[in-house]
């Protein structure tokens, strides 16, 4: 899922400085699960902003709402009236939700309340780790199901580099070396031969390097 975290309160305050009535709009999908922008976080942020802006002597009104999935028009329709009423929307969805809102309600500005961080997974209570870079040409079948693109700091296809030490990456002893993980997994699977072939350069044009991604499925179009 998409992992995000809230922007610093001061940054949010300066973003909404020129507006009086702010709709704080959460999203019920990924950012709810990673505790960044669900109904609960909308409530907490609204209280914090009410308090902070009052202390600053500003008279602002905060409306709270959460839709099930902010990246789809059909769910956002439910809050169309609230959007109309507000001076600005402060979205607690990922960057995709923010852009969907801006497209869907062009007469109103929707601001990002979160920093969208990565595609990842909760690995422990309160810990999220990056797992995929959406490279457009998945190589997990060659690497024992562990992604070298997102999880190796240098996205190596022929790792591990000379900085791999005690299972950790050269950039930080807190970071696992993806290629040590791949080696261990392939060894356990009896597939170490996959580590012996020289893997060719990747076709990055399948990823964002080839321009903004787009998929058109003629079979599904109306």
């Amino acid at each position: 899922m998409i992992i995000a975290e809230q922007k610093p309160l001061d940054e949010i305050k300066s973003m909404i400085a020129d507006y009086q009535k702010v709709l704080i709009l959460g999203c019920g999908t990924c950012v709810t699960i990673c505790f960044a922008g669900g109904e609960k976080e909308v409530g907490i942020l609204a209280s914090a902003l009410r308090m902070a802006t009052r202390l600053d002597g500003q008279d602002k009104e905060f409306i709270e709402a959460t839709v099930q999935r902010q990246c789809e028009y059909e769910f956002n329709e439910e809050v169309a009236d609230l959007v109309k009423e507000a001076d600005v929307v402060l979205s607690l969805a990922c960057g995709i939700g923010v852009q969907t809102m801006n497209e869907q309600f062009p007469e109103k500005l929707t601001l990002p309340g979160l920093n969208t961080k990565f595609l990842g997974q909760p690995t422990e209570q309160g810990v999220w780790d990056e797992r995929c870079l959406a490279c457009g040409d998945c190589v997990l079948y060659k690497t024992g199901g562990i992604c070298p693109i997102a999880r190796c700091s240098k996205s190596l296809l022929n790792g591990p580099c000379g900085g791999s030490q005690n299972g950790k990456c050269e950039i930080n002893p807190e970071v696992d070396c993806a290629w040590q993980l791949i080696y261990d997994r392939l060894k356990a699977l009896g597939k170490l031969d996959l580590m012996m072939e020289v893997k060719s350069p990747k076709d990055w044009s399948a990823s964002h390097a080839g321009g903004p991604g787009k998929i058109v499925r003629e079979d599904l179009r109306l």
Binding site: P160, G162, S164, Q165, G167, C177, D184
Partner: peptide, 16 residues
């Protein structure tokens, strides 16, 4: 780097 990990794999990476 003969001293990096995994030690057992290093000669094979050289082979690559």
């Amino acid at each position: 780097n003969p001293f990096a990990d995994p030690f057992d794999y290093r000669p094979y990476r050289l082979a690559k």
